[in-house]
Design a protein around this nucleic acid. Structure first.
Length: 259
DNA sequence: ATGCCATTCTGGGAATGA
């Protein structure tokens, strides 16, 4: 089965692109971030017509996350993280889908840094790691995927230019340390496990011809618990989706798991 | 240091993003 994460950057502006992508790639589960719409205006009917059950945690104008499942209804486990430092942000939703636990993450960007937004990012990541530990002990297959807003390493495999990103919240030592804490706790970075070497970008800015120059970086991650990692078959990035008209600035990133 | 480009809500331009 195929599980994808896709920062859609506005589900209303991007709905035709989303429906095309679902039809073309047929993910069994799709985690969406930055839907940028309220609960009331989520396009549930169109998504249902495409053959997907859905749950969502919306917010007017900003943020917002959703979990879609082909031919079935995700069973909501929670919206928001426990003890979220600012519960007004809709950045986390978690569901049971079949035997899987799926957490859909939109981690705060954190710019500018230093400052309160960066502090909020780090606090949010700490909360996520705390929560991930409670999922870990379930010994179930868990996928914590989404836009982590962290470029894990300084390698050109993860960013086109460490220098250009040097002052960005995405590359700060504290951001990377939090990501490493998650890895060191035993969570598997699926894309890098399948593709240990070479660029694996998932985001290209709209500005300054970043897409045309392949000036991207890797910030969308699928982190797997041991039982899920044991079933990992493949992973990749739907780069072609980023190249379409009216594309999101992120590309869908996916894994396949043995059933 | 800022704009670059884009989305949202709104009906001009701010807020946000990464």
């Amino acid at each position: 089965m195929k599980i994808a994460t896709f920062n859609i950057n506005g589900i209303k502006a991007r709905l035709p692109r989303l429906l095309e992508w679902l039809e073309e790639k047929q993910p069994d589960i799709a985690c969406l971030q930055e839907i940028k719409t309220s609960d009331e205006t989520f396009p549930a009917a169109e998504i249902e017509a495409a053959g997907y059950g859905a749950i969502w945690h919306g917010q007017k104008g900003f943020n917002g996350v959703a979990i879609l499942a082909r031919g079935q209804q995700p069973i909501e486990r929670m919206k928001g993280l426990p003890d979220d430092p600012d519960p007004t942000h809709s950045r986390y939703i978690e569901a049971d889908v079949g035997d899987l636990i799926v957490g859909c993450i939109y981690l705060p960007n954190g710019n500018p840094q230093p400052g309160p937004k960066f502090d909020y990012k780090l606090a949010w990541f700490d909360r996520l790691i705390d929560h991930s530990a409670t999922l870990w002990i379930s010994e179930r297959p868990v996928i914590l995927c989404g836009d982590y807003n962290v470029i894990p390493t300084s390698s050109t495999d993860d960013t086109f230019s460490e220098r250009a990103m040097a002052n960005d919240a995405l590359t700060q030592p504290e951001s990377r340390a939090a990501f490493r804490r998650m890895c060191n706790a035993g969570w598997t970075d699926a894309l890098r496990t399948i593709h240990p070497h070479g660029p694996a970008y998932t985001f290209w800015d709209y500005q300054a011809g970043a897409w045309q120059r392949d000036a991207g970086f890797r910030i969308d991650h699928l982190m797997l618990s041991p039982v899920a990692a044991d079933r990992l078959l493949d992973a990749g990035v739907d780069k072609d989706t980023r190249g379409k008209e009216k594309a999101s600035d992120h590309a869908p990133t996916w894994i396949t798991l043995r059933d």
